[in-house]
Write a protein that binds this DNA or RNA. Structure first.
Length: 921
RNA sequence: AGGCGCGUAGCUCAGUUGGUUAGAGCGCUACCUUGACAUGGUAGAGGUCACCAGUUCGAAUCUGGUCGUGCCUACCA
């Protein structure tokens, strides 16, 4: 074995072998266990969020697979309508053309080409994470079979009246030329203005002052509204104003939507370009005047001077023209929420179009109930509030998009625009008896990407035709995802799955936190703080990292700043830490209900942990190869250390099982780290040395210890495997034969179970004693500056018979681990030499001074120790002197405090006596 | 405006139903290249658990409030 762990040499090898041998497919006869992958964009790249979620899903899958479940991790990718189409459109733009020139069919072909070309990247990256996904069942949302499900769902919902076509205001993206849903609109506060304009009151010399944040929409004004009880304006209700620049006369209406406190209390009403105005327009039968084109420039409804102007150009022009007419009362700075498309970043327009909608209420009700009744549980539970809040106020879902990449809507129109919905044109003609002489054209639009994603759990498992996997694995066990897509995806899956299969899609929803950078900042291209999981696995040179982070940056000053920041954060670039170390970092940070700040320092620490395990294995192997190992499991031959480590392993097993049960991967990883490093390596390996090196005198003991050494390691590897798949496999393959274990892979071995009978309290208390004495001696060595190379003599005094027995049975350990010349028990009566003193319980540990240390240093050390004891004593005594505590606290608590008081008192007294003795010298 | 979190060592975080002298890792200090590992070992320093009040014999933990901070939802033109 190499002296250090070299992850890159083993990872590809094992992953390929696992995949080739079909280990990722469900096996055996155990109860099914299933997770579906949140499908990544087929042309996307792996990011830290994926890395985190995959680490968790893979741990769950491997854990349950080892527990004997038929584990299926269903894999697949998403066509990601807008995102993918935008990429290809950008490619066209770079080539000096666009999709309209290319034409629909050729464009869609190009997108498929791009999918083929780049689609393998993300799936290769998922493999690098060690994810045990069942690649033999890989799906894509636009596969034939999945598309058929999409079509069926659409047609069925339509036939039930739950999908309808409506002409109403939608969120329109004027750059992408498509409608988007409410969820795809991001509103953030921006600086703007509040313009106050004077609208002349008809047939008078008076005017009304209205306030608006969007002057250009005045071209579509249909009324001015005031509050019905606003005394300033009641006399004007029913009268008219002359809309400046437009030569139109519009009414003054009353509506209690108007807030008299805001602005002037007069609102211009533009039904075609504002959601609230649209509703008010319906209430008052106002004309809906659309003044914008698809590009959000001014259309022909407006006066000629403004036609063709971009909306923001028109705004400037209008303000200037009103200014010239003396109709601008004032302009105030004003903060307002500006709606922007989450993909394009441009300002979204409420825009009147024909779109397809899902009538959502009847789907939402059972979906709410499923969570209320606990059929579906969120982890952590508080996300259920978020879910309920949105679901109880849900709006109909706009599902049509004016894109070319996606599932085309299965609706056809005749020349009179009558709509026919069906599985195909042939189907539609047959159903509606439409003659071939009638020309039908299919709806141009495609469905929102999330429409097909909503069907993911059951469409990927073969519903409705091929039901073997569906029947076995659905409902799935747990969905692992981020809070940001609870509405986009989780809620819609619950609704659609209940509607069509009558089953919940999953029993649990584990919501992960967001992965942020080490300072808690969101990772983003513009901040230049993105970490690529693959770079943490393979490492990356500083220059390359800087190049990567600053590529395609528009602003040069941003580029410089990011380069500087990157050089500060990673002066040496990033080392190759390997997948296991990266995964373990995720687990260690995965406490529930909290975002995680990703600190590369942690990854380095866990890389070291991998190396520690590697070397522990080297030690175990070096000490076993070619040597006799006990064949029987004979506890009578076990040393106290053997029994202790077995007992601690048992407890660790219990902790890990419980932690995984509760989705507490942080606690699981902590328990494993603590056990393997601080107990197995730091203590057990050291305790095994005296026995293994004393083989000539006691071969049975050495053989038994060898057995335990290997057994504990082997079982630890199995405990650890779901978290560190590669390292554990590599070592296990070398180790298993030494123990006579036959098996092809650790991933097919059983997961350790907890057996309370294997907890050995006696062994634990004995080794605790041993550790306590050794630590007391080392402490004196350390603080008194006694060279580690120097052997010393130690006396023990006080204590009970048990302590003396422990000394006798642990002499060899003490001599080796504390580097002792000699250690013996002093009877209580005998005179102690001048010595430095430590305590373990009521055992005094005496290191004779002669020639080793100076008295004042020891006194200073004692004073410090006494100080600590007295602080504790003060706290305990305070409690016990409080009569209310003694009379009210439970008996057990009081007894415990009393005992503690005695121990502290005895210890303090003993050290004080030592201090006095030293003073006499 | 409502809702959900968070605030514990220099940094990143644990702390289960209120009861240990509040823990871990990283970082820091000192010593040590001892026959698994310097990606290591041994020892050590470091916290009035954001603040205030309350409940209780007892609060990092429960309640109320204040401050700071992050996010989500709905918005007034």
């Amino acid at each position: 074995m190499e002296k250090t762990f070299q992850p890159q040499q083993i990872e590809d090898h094992w992953y390929k072998l696992w995949e080739e041998r079909g280990y990722f497919s469900p096996q055996g006869e155990g109860a099914p266990y299933c997770i579906v992958i949140p499908p990544p964009n087929v042309t996307g790249r792996l990011h830290m969020g994926h890395g985190f979620q995959h680490a968790i899903m893979d741990a769950l899958i491997r854990f349950h697979r080892m527990q004997g479940r038929q584990a299926l991790w269903q894999v697949g990718t998403d066509h990601a309508g807008i995102a993918t189409q935008m990429v290809v459109e950008r490619q066209l733009a770079a080539a000096g053309t666009n999709r309209h020139e290319v034409g629909r069919e050729a464009f869609v072909d190009k997108v498929w080409d791009w999918k083929e070309e780049s689609g393998g990247i993300i799936t290769q990256q998922l493999r690098r994470m060690g994810s045990s996904l069942d690649w033999s069942r890989e799906r894509f949302t636009m596969d034939e079979q999945l598309s058929a499900v999409v079509e069926k769902v659409f047609v069925d919902l339509y036939n039930e009246g739950l999908i309808y076509r409506g002409n109403r205001l939608v969120n329109w993206d004027p750059q992408l030329h498509t409608a988007i849903s409410d969820l795809e609109v991001i509103s953030e506060e921006e600086d703007g203005h509040l313009w106050h304009f004077n609208y002349p009151i008809a047939d008078s010399d008076q005017h009304l002052t209205i306030a608006t944040t969007r002057p250009e929409t005045m071209l579509g004004d249909a009324a001015v509204a005031v509050h019905p009880e606003d005394e300033r304006y009641t006399h004007l209700i029913g009268k008219f104003v002359d809309l400046p620049l437009c030569n139109r006369r519009i009414p003054i209406i009353a509506d209690d939507y108007v807030d008299p406190e805001f602005g002037t209390g007069c609102v211009k009403i533009t039904p075609a370009h504002d959601f609230n105005d649209y509703e008010m327009g319906k209430r008052h039968n106002l004309e809906v005047i659309n003044i914008l084109t698809d590009n959000a420039s001014i259309n022909d409804e407006a006066p000629a001077t403004y036609r063709g102007l971009d909306r923001f150009e028109a705004r400037k022009q209008l303000v200037a023209d009103l200014e010239a007419l003396g109709l601008v009362e004032k302009i105030e700075p004003h903060k307002l929420k500006v709606p922007r498309g989450d993909r394009s970043g441009v300002v979204i327009e409420p825009y009147l179009t024909h779109q397809w909608y899902v009538a959502i209420q009847s789907l939402a009700d059972p979906a709410i109930k499923a969570v209320e009744d606990g059929d579906i549980e969120f982890v952590p539970k508080n996300w259920e509030n978020t879910y309920f809040a949105w679901m109880r106020n849900i709006q109909d879902w706009c599902i049509s998009r004016q894109l070319w990449w996606g599932h085309r809507i299965p609706a056809w129109y005749d020349e009179d625009n009558n709509v026919y919905v069906g599985h195909s044109e042939v189907d539609v003609r047959a159903k509606h008896e439409i003659d071939d002489s009638v020309v039908l054209r299919q709806d141009e639009d495609v469905l929102d990407t999330w429409f097909s994603s909503a069907l993911w759990t059951f469409s990927t498992l073969g519903w409705p035709d091929d039901t073997e996997y569906f029947n076995k694995f659905h409902p799935t066990d747990v969905l692992v995802t981020g809070f940001d897509i609870i509405f986009f995806w989780v809620a819609r899956m619950i609704m659609m799955t209940l509607k069509f299969t009558g089953e919940i899609p999953f029993k649990k929803v584990y919501i992960t936190g967001l992965v942020r950078d080490e300072h808690g900042q969101k990772m983003s291209k513009s901040k230049g703080n993105i970490l690529d999981p693959i770079d943490l696995i393979d490492g990356i040179e500083l220059d390359e990292l800087v190049e990567k982070r600053t590529a395609d940056m528009m602003q040069p000053q941003l580029k410089e700043k990011i380069a500087r920041l990157t050089r500060d954060s990673f002066p040496e670039g990033i080392a190759a830490y390997g997948t296991d170390a990266l995964r373990f970092t995720y687990y260690s940070l995965a406490s529930t209900g909290r975002d995680i700040k990703f600190d590369v320092g942690r990854t380095e620490g866990f890389r070291n942990f991998c190396n520690k395990i590697w070397n522990a294995a080297r030690y175990a192997m070096m000490n076993s190869e070619g040597k006799a190992i006990a064949t029987d499991w004979d506890p009578a031959q076990f040393s106290s250390a053997d029994r202790w480590i077995l007992s601690r392993l048992e407890q660790t097993t219990s902790e890990v099982l419980e932690a995984v049960d509760n989705y507490r991967f942080d606690l699981a990883s902590q328990a494993l780290h603590e056990f393997i490093w601080n107990e197995y390596c730091d203590w057990y390996l050291e305790l095994s040395k005296p026995i293994l090196w004393d083989e000539d005198n006691n071969p049975e003991a050495a053989q038994a210890t060898r057995k335990v050494l290997l057994t504990v390691l082997e079982r630890s590897l199995r405990l650890l495997h779901p978290f560190m798949p590669f390292l554990t496999e590599e070592i296990w393959q070398k180790l298993a034969p030494a123990l006579g274990i036959v098996g092809d892979s650790i991933m097919l071995q059983p997961y350790p179970e907890f057996d309370a009978d294997n907890v050995d309290a006696a062994a634990q208390s004995e080794i605790d004693w041993l550790k306590g004495i050794i630590v007391a001696i080392r402490n004196i060595r350390g603080e008194m500056d006694i060279s580690p190379a120097r052997s010393i003599s130690v006396f023990l005094r006080g204590g009970e018979e048990q302590d003396q027995n422990y000394l006798q049975s642990n002499l060899m350990y003490l001599q080796k681990l504390a580097k002792l010349e000699n250690i013996e028990w002093l009877s209580a009566e005998s005179e102690a030499p001048a010595a430095a003193t430590g305590l373990y319980g009521n055992v005094e540990v005496l290191v004779p001074l002669a020639g080793l240390i100076d008295v004042s240093a020891e006194q200073a050390r004692l004073e410090k120790e006494i100080g600590k004891l007295e602080a504790g004593l003060k706290a305990v005594s305070g409690k016990l002197n409080n009569e209310k505590f003694v009379s009210n606290a439970p008996e057990a608590v009081v007894t415990k405090e009393r005992q503690k008081q005695q121990e502290l008192q005895a210890a303090a007294d003993a050290l004080k006596a030592k201090f006095e003795e030293l003073s006499k010298l």
